[in-house]
């Protein structure tokens, strides 16, 4: 009886430790000065120099790090927001309207789920090169808008949670299709939209190869690429190591905020999908 409870607790405890230790390490590392970083216990604090590190990070190269952080929020937040609306509309249309070729379109979109984003980066670069549009904001933003997995989720959720009778009623009351979508259907789909938004947010945030290939202008970098750029220079310029560590710590803050704010909806979305 007791063992039944202890065993899962031990396993979950181990998992928690496994996931939290790297973050703890990062927090500790970012709080040290450079000389203490290599000479003191990696899992416990030495002299607390986090503020100095932050000040140095935000001042380095005219504060380019803050610019990167801003870029990341615009790329990921903007693309996730617009992309969620697109995915929702597309999935909703595929779920609720009958038209020829509907299944074919859906299957093509589904096949897009199978093509990894990394495989598309190079073809996208060559296409954007044709229009002299590489090394621009749009070369990263536009490709980030589409999200086939979001369409799939939206379609499944729309067919389960938006009753046809309700749409019928809205039409009888004289509401246009677009208005119905935004005022009625999207409300019903809201938990699913939050899920799509989060998935999309994380996918764009993690899509590292696209900006790496597209961008050469440092002022356009997202924070992931910027930190990576610094990190490749650590061998030759060891003084940037603390900037990379402190930057990594700061750069996870927006992700943590996004998840803390939205996890309530997300749990709700996954759960309600399960019952239906």
């Amino acid at each position: 009886m007791k063992l039944n409870r202890i065993a899962p607790m031990v396993i979950m405890g181990a998992c928690t430790l496994y996931f939290l230790v790297p973050i703890w390490w990062l927090l500790v590392a970012a709080s040290k000065s450079r000389s203490e970083f290599s000479s003191t216990d990696p899992l416990w604090f030495a002299d607390f120099a986090l503020m100095d590190n932050l000040r140095e990070l935000f001042a380095y190269r005219d504060g380019v790090f803050l610019r990167w952080l801003g870029n990341s929020i615009v790329y990921t937040g903007g693309a996730a927001l617009l992309g969620t609306v697109l995915a929702a509309m597309c999935g909703y249309a595929l779920a609720k309207y009958r038209f020829p070729g509907r299944e074919a379109i859906f299957n093509v979109v589904l096949s897009g789920v199978l093509v990894p984003a990394t495989a598309l980066a190079l073809p996208l670069f060559l296409i954007f090169s044709q229009f002299n549009a590489t090394n621009t904001f749009w070369s990263v933003f536009l490709p980030s808008l589409v999200n086939p997995f979001g369409v799939y989720l939206a379609r499944i959720y729309a067919s389960a949670s938006v009753p046809d009778e309700l749409l019928e009623a809205a039409r009888l009351d004289g509401s246009g299709e677009v208005r119905t979508f935004f005022t009625v259907s999207s409300r019903l789909m809201f938990p699913a939209l939050v899920t799509i938004f989060l998935f999309h947010f994380v996918a764009v945030w993690n899509n590292f190869l696209l900006p790496l290939i597209m961008l050469g202008n440092e002022r356009l970098f997202p924070v992931t690429l910027g930190l990576y750029t610094w990190n490749t220079q650590v061998n030759q310029y060891p003084e940037v190591r603390m900037l990379v560590l402190t930057g990594a710590l700061v750069s996870i803050v927006p992700l943590v905020i996004a998840f803390l704010l939205l996890q309530r909806f997300w749990r709700n979305g996954l759960g309600s999908g399960a019952i239906k």
């Binding site: 190079l122 670069f125 060559l126 090169s129 090394n135 790496l212 290939i213 961008l215 050469g216 202008n217 440092e218 690429l225 990576y228 750029t229 990190n231 490749t232 220079q233 030759q236």
Partner: peptide
């Protein structure tokens, strides 16, 4: 224009470009 060091991605970018 800037980027990671050569083997970190910039050489590959040069080839793509």
């Amino acid at each position: 224009q800037t980027g990671p060091n050569g083997n970190g991605g910039t050489y590959q970018n040069f080839f793509n470009q």
